[in-house]
Simulated assay, not measured.
Amino acid sequence: MPTLLSAEYIALVDRGVSTIVASRDTQLRPSVMRAVGARISTNGQRITVFLRRSQSRQLLADIATTGHIAVVFSDPPSHRTVQVKATAAVQRAVLPADEPALQSYLSAMQHAVAQVGYGPQYTAAMLNAPRDDLVAVEFSPEAAFDQTPGPHAGEPLRKERQPRTCRHPALHPRLPGGRDSCHHGHLRPRRHAQRGLHLTGGLRR
């Protein structure tokens, strides 16, 4: 299955960076709030952000109504930034199993923000979140954009395809050391024939 986020962007989100969550209502009026935690699956296909309910009532209402969500992840020291969007976000209660992710996010943000001149107390206050005030929002990214300041800001990210596994390993010539040489060359004659081409590139007459 194609992966929307590259390993580089998955690592960016996973290490804990500034996270801003937005949505909109049915009249296209925006709502926005800073998340106090975030988590991403190892394959990048599922993201969870944590919001304070008392600070995010309009945002959570808009997500509940429309399912739409846009999240910007930005590294404070480098400004490396990616934005992801989805149309089927869901909300759930925060669970005890979420605690390690919340603690890890706080520690990572304290480290990142310290690099731009603000101490850990500042970040702890900014991300202070009584657990009974938290809600988790989960979604699978459907679109992603490079938002790092510069000439490529705003460009959509292309899906990364997983390495293809050949179904005919017995046909592969072996290289020294036992390495596999398959580049699916044994499939090309059939494809060319189907397109009406000889292997020389000439047209079938």
Rank of each mutant, 00 (worst) to 15 (best):
Q121K: 03
A38H: 00
R34C: 00
R92I: 14
R34S: 00
N128I: 08
L197W: 14
P100Y: 05
G16H: 04
L157P: 05
R24K: 15
A86S: 05
L51E: 04
S107C: 00
E155P: 04
P96E: 12
S78K: 10
R179W: 09
D98W: 04
G44L: 08
P176A: 09
P141A: 00
Y122L: 09
P156R: 07
Y9V: 08
R188S: 03
Q162S: 10
L134C: 03
A125S: 15
D180G: 06
Q115D: 10
V135W: 05
D62N: 15
Q147I: 11
G67R: 02
R52Q: 13
G202D: 15
V84T: 14
A136S: 07
A64I: 13
F139R: 05
R131K: 09
A144T: 12
P76Y: 05
V90S: 14
P96M: 06
G178V: 09
L203Q: 15
T81C: 06
F145A: 05
P130N: 03
H68M: 09
P96N: 06
F73M: 01
L175H: 07
T42Q: 08
G178L: 06
E99A: 07
L157Q: 07
I63Y: 01
D98Q: 08
Q110C: 06
S6E: 12
H152Q: 15
R190I: 02
H192C: 13
S23A: 04
I69M: 01
M1T: 03
Q121R: 07
H168C: 12
T48K: 12
T3F: 07
D98A: 04
L171R: 10
G67V: 02
V116A: 09
R34T: 01
F73R: 00
L59D: 05
G196E: 12
G67W: 03
P2D: 04
A143N: 02
V13M: 09
P2L: 00
R46N: 07
V137C: 03
Y105M: 01
S140D: 10
M1P: 03
R29C: 01
H111W: 03
S54T: 13
F139V: 07
A61M: 13
S31Q: 13
V49M: 02
L171C: 04
A89T: 10
L102T: 07
P120A: 09
P169D: 10
R15K: 13
A11I: 12
V90K: 14
